[in-house]
Design a binder for these strands. Structure first.
Length: 451
RNA sequence: GGCGAUGUGGCCGAGUGGCUGAGGCAAGGGCCUGCAAAGCCCUCUACCUGGGUUCGAUUCCCAGCAUCGCCUCCA
C-alpha cells in the first residue's frame, strides 16, 4: 500500500486510486520564459522518481504536465526584447525538454499547452459568470472567493487570517474587485498584446485556469494526485481548487508538494530572487546524475541545499556505484534478492522515503561487494537487486564501457607486463591510460578499463 | 500580525521514548595488492537553549532563541 503525505489533510495517508491499477497525476509544469532553474529540476526529478516508482510497482501511470505558454512574464520579455512571444515560448520549451532529457526525466504522458485550451477556458469562465461565481470588471473577469466554503484548505489558513497580516504587498487589481483575494480568470489585453476573443472582451486567460481545465479534461473529475512545488500550494493550487469547487466538480483527491531548493544561506532559491545558478549550468559542470542522487538522499518534503559539497559527495557516491556496476557485470543473471526488494518497497511506500531506500541501496552494494570478494553465491541476486533499485530510481549506472581496440590492447599489454613482473612497464602503461581519462583497475583476473 | 517548517557528529543528511545512535562524503588504522585503484573490516566526533511529563527524551509537552517559507500569480 502506497502511503503519501497529503498537503490538504496534513497527514500521511494511502493514495487511494479512482481506478485500481491506474493512477492519474497532474503536475504543474513550467512557464516557458527563461532557462530552467534548480527548483524546476528538483520538482521534475522528484516526480520523475515518483512516476518511475509507481510504474515499477506495476501501476499504469498517466502523468499530465502542462506548459504555460501564455503569461505576463512571457509578454514582458517579448516586449523587452522586441521579439514575437511565440519565439520565446518555443525556444524555452525546447531548452526545457533537452534539459529534462539530460536529467533522464521521462517525458510526461501528456504535455498540454495553455494556448491549446483557451476555448475550453472561455467556456469554463462563462459557466462561472453565468452562475454568478465570477464577475466582469474593467480589466478582466474575476472569481469570487468569498463564497467558496473551504477556501484556504491548502493554505491552512482562513481568508480572514490571510488578509489580516502581510498586507504591505500591493493587491493585484484591488480597486475593481469585490474581495481582495479574488483572482483573475481572464485578463483584458492591452493593444499589441497577444489576445483571444471572449464574450467579455479580447484577452488572455489567468494563470490558475489552465490547470483546472486541462486536468479535468485529460484526467477527469476526482483524479488521483495533484503535484507541484511548495510555492504553488498557495495561491496557485488553492485557486485551481476554488474554480473546481465553484464549478461543482470534484478536483484532486490527494495533494503532494515538494520542498524548496535553498542557497548556501538557506534561503529559497528562485527566479524572483535572482540568485539562481541555473539547471543548465549545473549539468554542464557536473554529472547530471549527481542532482538526482542528492535528491534521492534528501526527503522530498524537506529543503535541500545544492552546494559544492553536496554535489561532490554525490559524484563520489556515484563513482562507487559505477565501480560496482562494472565489477558486477560479469556475474550471471539472477532474480533480485527478494528480501531486499521487499525492504525497498516498504521504504518507498512510506511517503516515498528515498533516503531510506538509498541507504538500502548502498547497504546492498556493500553486501554484494563482500559476496563477490568471498565468492559467495548470493552476489548475483544482490547485484540484481541493486540494478532493480537503480532502475526504479531512474539512475543509470555506467557499467563496463565499450573500450576502443587500442585501449584494450594497452590493457592487454599491461597484464602481460604484470605477468612478466615488469612493473616499470606496467606502471607506465597504467599512467598512460589514466592520463587518457580511463579508470584502470588491475585485479587478479585481469585489468578492467572503464570511463 | 497570521499560518507553517527546520535546528543531529568534520560536512551533507535520515531516524527513533530506552535494547547507544541510517546512509553518503571526508579523515585515521587494518586486510587485499608488486605498488596503486577498486573492494572488505574497524575507528573518531551528535542530537539549539531552558523548563516539564516519564523509571528513562535527541525523540513527547511548554517556553525561548535562531534560520527559513507562505500570507495574490516563483518548482
Amino acid at each position: 500500500m502506497f502511503r503519501l503525505y497529503d498537503s490538504a489533510t496534513s497527514e500521511v495517508r494511502e493514495l487511494r486510486l479512482r481506478t485500481p491499477g491506474r493512477v492519474g497525476i497532474y503536475l504543474c509544469g513550467p512557464t516557458v520564459y527563461g532557462p530552467p532553474h534548480l527548483g524546476h529540476g528538483r520538482a521534475t526529478l522528484v516526480y520523475d522518481i515518483l512516476r518511475r516508482y509507481l510504474e515499477w510497482t506495476g501501476l499504469e501511470v498517466r502523468l499530465v504536465s502542462n506548459i504555460t505558454d501564455i503569461d505576463d512574464k512571457i509578454i514582458d520579455r517579448a516586449n523587452r526584447e522586441s521579439r514575437p512571444w511565440q519565439e520565446i515560448t518555443h525556444k524555452c520549451e525546447d531548452v526545457w525538454f533537452r534539459a529534462m532529457e539530460k536529467l533522464n526525466v521521462q517525458r510526461p504522458t501528456d504535455v498540454p499547452h495553455a494556448t491549446e485550451y483557451v476555448d475550453q477556458m472561455v467556456d469554463m469562465i462563462a459557466t462561472l459568470v453565468a452562475s454568478d461565481r465570477a464577475y466582469v470588471t474593467g480589466d478582466g473577469v474575476y472569481l469570487s472567493v468569498d463564497d467558496i466554503d473551504d477556501y484556504g484548505l491548502l493554505a491552512h489558513q482562513s481568508l480572514d487570517d490571510m488578509l489580516s497580516g502581510g498586507g504591505e504587498r500591493e493587491v493585484f487589481g484591488a480597486g475593481n474587485k469585490r474581495h481582495p483575494a479574488d483572482f483573475a480568470l481572464w485578463k483584458f489585453s492591452k493593444p499589441g498584446e497577444p489576445s483571444w476573443p471572449s464574450p467579455w472582451g479580447d484577452g488572455r486567460p489567468g494563470w490558475h485556469s489552465e490547470c483546472v481545465v486541462m486536468s479535468l479534461e485529460l484526467l477527469g473529475e476526482g483524479f488521483d494526485l495533484h503535484c507541484g512545488g511548495m510555492d504553488l500550494k498557495f495561491p496557485h493550487h488553492e485557486n485551481e481548487r476554488a474554480q473546481a469547487v465553484a464549478l461543482g466538480k470534484e478536483f484532486a483527491n490527494h495533494w503532494m508538494h515538494n520542498g524548496f531548493v535553498v542557497d548556501a544561506e538557506g534561503e529559497k532559491m528562485s527566479k524572483s530572487l535572482g540568485n539562481v545558478a541555473n539547471l543548465l549550468d549545473l549539468m554542464d559542470l557536473y554529472d547530471p546524475r549527481a542532482y538526482r542522487m542528492v535528491l534521492l538522499q534528501t526527503h522530498y518534503r524537506g529543503p535541500v541545499r545544492v552546494g559544492q559539497d553536496n554535489i561532490d559527495a554525490a559524484v563520489s557516491a556515484l563513482a562507487g556505484l559505477d565501480a560496482f556496476a562494472a565489477r558486477a557485470a560479469s556475474l550471471g543473471e539472477a532474480a533480485p534478492d527478494p528480501e531486499t526488494m521487499v525492504s525497498f518497497r516498504d521504504r518507498m511506500d512510506d511517503d516515498l522515503d528515498t533516503p531510506a531506500a538509498t541507504a538500502l541501496l548502498f547497504d546492498t552494494v556493500r553486501r554484494a561487494n563482500a559476496a563477490i570478494d568471498a565468492g559467495g553465491s548470493e552476489a548475483a541476486s544482490l547485484a540484481a537487486a541493486v540494478h532493480e533499485i537503480c532502475r526504479a530510481f531512474g539512475l543509470v549506472l555506467k557499467g563496463a564501457a565499450d573500450v576502443p581496440a587500442d585501449v584494450a590492447a594497452k590493457a592487454a599489454a599491461l597484464d602481460a607486463a604484470r605477468a612478466a613482473k615488469d612493473f616499470a612497464t606496467a606502471d607506465a602503461l597504467r599512467a598512460e591510460l589514466q592520463a587518457d581519462g580511463w579508470i584502470v583497475e588491475t585485479t587478479k583476473t585481469g585489468t578492467a578499463i572503464r570511463r
